[in-house]
Design a protein around this nucleic acid. Sequence first.
DNA 1: GATGAATGAGACTTCATTCAT
DNA 2: GATGAATGAAGTCTCATTCAT
Lengths: 238, 238, 238, 238
Amino acid sequence: MPKITRAAKAPGPARLAGANPISTPRRAKGTPAPSNPVGARARRSAERRDAILAAALDEFSARGFAATRLDDVARRADVAKGTIYLHFADKETLFQELIRVEIGPVVQVLEIASHTDMPLRQVTDRLIEVFVREVFETRRKDVIRLILTEGPRFPALAEFYYREVISRVMTTIRAMLRRAHERGELRTDALVRFPQLLPAPGIVAIIWSGLFDRFEPVDVRAMMRAHFDMLLAPGSAP
Amino acid sequence: MPKITRAAKAPGPARLAGANPISTPRRAKGTPAPSNPVGARARRSAERRDAILAAALDEFSARGFAATRLDDVARRADVAKGTIYLHFADKETLFQELIRVEIGPVVQVLEIASHTDMPLRQVTDRLIEVFVREVFETRRKDVIRLILTEGPRFPALAEFYYREVISRVMTTIRAMLRRAHERGELRTDALVRFPQLLPAPGIVAIIWSGLFDRFEPVDVRAMMRAHFDMLLAPGSAP
Amino acid sequence: MPKITRAAKAPGPARLAGANPISTPRRAKGTPAPSNPVGARARRSAERRDAILAAALDEFSARGFAATRLDDVARRADVAKGTIYLHFADKETLFQELIRVEIGPVVQVLEIASHTDMPLRQVTDRLIEVFVREVFETRRKDVIRLILTEGPRFPALAEFYYREVISRVMTTIRAMLRRAHERGELRTDALVRFPQLLPAPGIVAIIWSGLFDRFEPVDVRAMMRAHFDMLLAPGSAP
Amino acid sequence: MPKITRAAKAPGPARLAGANPISTPRRAKGTPAPSNPVGARARRSAERRDAILAAALDEFSARGFAATRLDDVARRADVAKGTIYLHFADKETLFQELIRVEIGPVVQVLEIASHTDMPLRQVTDRLIEVFVREVFETRRKDVIRLILTEGPRFPALAEFYYREVISRVMTTIRAMLRRAHERGELRTDALVRFPQLLPAPGIVAIIWSGLFDRFEPVDVRAMMRAHFDMLLAPGSAP
DNA sequence: GATGAATGAGACTTCATTCAT
DNA sequence: GATGAATGAAGTCTCATTCAT
């Protein structure tokens, strides 16, 4: 087995997916900042904060929480090391904030997408698109991966994530699935009992891409479709 | 959101699943060691090595690679710090060895379990049992989780794992699924195209257990059965 | 034979020969620093760097490269351990810099002193004075001793020293000696063929002082004069 | 300035100059050892001791005292690490013994060579030969170099060396030189006042060879002759 | 006597955090 | 607010020395 070497340089700079439909409403875009010297300062400060978060995501994703150096985050965000501490109490708080800021919007969208009585087939099609476009093809994929990889060592993070995301999403999905089952769109109640199985291919795809994309890239969309095909294929008449 | 605090103490001491059917045959158990003064030293040395590996698994699992202190590994293994370096070149090598030693046997068992022409239903039943008993209920679950969580930062580890485990297992499983499909046991070829979907619930369960077991434990066996129920339910005649 | 014991404490604090004619012009002495708030930080930083170099010379001289603890250097320079690494990449680089910073000026002075057509007698008198005042009675003597004692284990150091110092000085000296020989000031061409013999008593004095000064101090000036007396004594008529 | 790198591997195995005229009478060569089982063990033990000393000289010469690992000494001597401690109390004692064993014979020879009323010219010729053959071309050169380079950090070693070697040799040489001066073989009393000047080229050659042989080897014999030529050239009549 | 595995003090180096400017 | 030099606790790794076999 070859020598494990430190993961190479973190990849290039990344926007925090600002222009996406799922956007973080951090600061009103229309602020007439330039003319107001006070507002200008506040805006610069907020920009720095965002730059730090973006840089932090890059670094945490590339190296994990423990191995990330705030020095590198500062350099990538193009601020001084001390500036980080003007915005975040410490490394852990920075990490937390990162997750919180990025994860919130996803939940809303997923909840909205699931709150419907459309045929399950249409819902899943929409979920696939939302997942691929808003998560898998953005840096949010990295945020999710960070939760999966760092969560076990950060109980508080896992709890936050469970409370704010998982339980809410699961409740919504479960309700939707129950209605679908009652409408006869599901052959079994397996999905109702284990709603985790619905997003399972998404989870697997995120993990796979982090580990094995170099060797064998995965086609998420196709894999998710294949998965839903199996779940929703019309069963034999009961 | 509560403050993320460093994961508490790593859990209690753990055997390296020594008595399992999938056992590493390091040293013959029946050796009449005490009567052999020459072998005694070698035996003690091997025992220490095993103790270090066991301790390392506990610590790496609890804290991740970067945050694990070799001091703690030594204390847990009840050896001096320097002793670790008699057996492993450095922290990375120790981590590698840990994965290598534990992962090898699993692959063999999975390959054997899949090399069959039994009805798919029976195979999956067997796979569930093997997975639960030999992986999920042993420390091997933690090894797998370590690969999933640390893999992204250790390219060499991911490569080793892909080459030695994933690609081999995937090939075996795909062949088995193809035969099953040809025998009409699968409604679609989705699984043949994406064999990752077969073990998906196992992966999800390992991740879930690491993150959310405190809040909502998962019944792996039931979840895997539910998953296979959906995949294998007889389809409507085309 | 008595037990060899670790050399006692390194001797007291030493200036890096700052007020000597051969001075390193790091920072203008007359700078009205306190009134300039911007330069103040940079000045403090440069002072710390100098303090580290001075402390390092003391410690390396007293114990040799390998046995010197950067902890002690830091304590002596009155800075934190980490501060050393703000100025020097590692222990070796610190050692290198030390040599480089101190050796440079010496070469220039020696070259200037040798570039002359004065009678050899006068040149040697001047060389004695320069050597004694600028080398033997300053910490530069310790730098030279460090090169002599550590050089064999540091090929790169020896190479640097040969290239930057020895070969240049030797060339200059040889030319001067050749002219003196042609003017009939030397009885033989021995010195022209082996210019090393000219500084030999200086080398021997540096070594002697490091080893045996406690038992029998050496009068460098007198020894060098005696040496030159022999070399330059008028020969028998040819 | 290039990076200083650790001196490469210590050079090949070296006999402790056993067959030289200046031989260490450690163990009688004619011992009928093989037939005597007890003597055989003692002989093996003595051989090991010698092997350790030889290996130690190699390693200490290549790396210096502090950087030498007893592990390497043991490996080179082909004994176990613990064996060293059967023969020498600790690393320092080993180093001391090394110097003591090798230096003793040299002194005797030098004293004998100097105790003479031959013309100085003849004495110096003989000294050159003895020095070159018995010191410069053997591992004793390395021993001398070790004294010069490690002496400053080992007061006890310097003292031993001064008492047992330097002072005795200097006394002998000084007496010889005084007689030569009285016989009119020296133009000045410079050498009588500074007998160190006589061996100066030998010292310089040893240092030079350790530092710069790669770039510009030195011809010791020729340099010493040139030196003596200058010292002994007939002066003008006073 | 010989071995070499084990020990643990100690060295170098890193990096989160602070604070004077 | 912003900076980045300074700090020092903490981590990895080395190696002289010991001691059971």
